[in-house]
């Protein structure tokens, strides 16, 4: 199980366009991917509704997990999407 703990940098948090891009990227991989707030239950990262309901704001930490071949590359991409200042 690979895991990344990252701080959400996007201005709108993990909502709106950043959330859509995040879920689209997660959906492109065949791996199971989850996202959670630290210490909370993880949700399916391919579910836009679950990701929105997570309500991760700018400055909050999230934990992204994936398992299987190429998990690290997937996690790097996803982490990059929420740490891009410009979005």
């Amino acid at each position: 199980m690979a895991e990344r703990r990252v701080r959400v940098e996007t201005k709108v948090g993990l909502h709106a366009r950043p959330a859509a891009l995040f879920v689209q990227a997660a959906t492109r991989t065949p791996l199971d991917v989850t996202v959670a707030k630290p210490g909370k239950d993880p949700v399916n990262a391919k579910s836009i509704l679950s990701v929105l309901a997570l309500d991760a704001q700018q400055g909050e930490e999230i934990v992204i997990r994936a398992e299987g071949d190429g998990a690290d590359a997937v996690l790097d991409e996803l982490a990059g999407l929420v740490t891009e200042q410009s979005a």
Binding site: R17, A20, V23, Q24, V43, N44, S47, I48, L49, S50
Partner: peptide, 18 residues
């Protein structure tokens, strides 16, 4: 397009389907 694409994602949401 972006707004409706986001809505389309909601309709196809795997969590919802679950």
């Amino acid at each position: 397009r972006d707004v409706l694409a986001a809505q389309a994602m909601m309709a196809r949401d795997p969590g919802l389907a679950g």
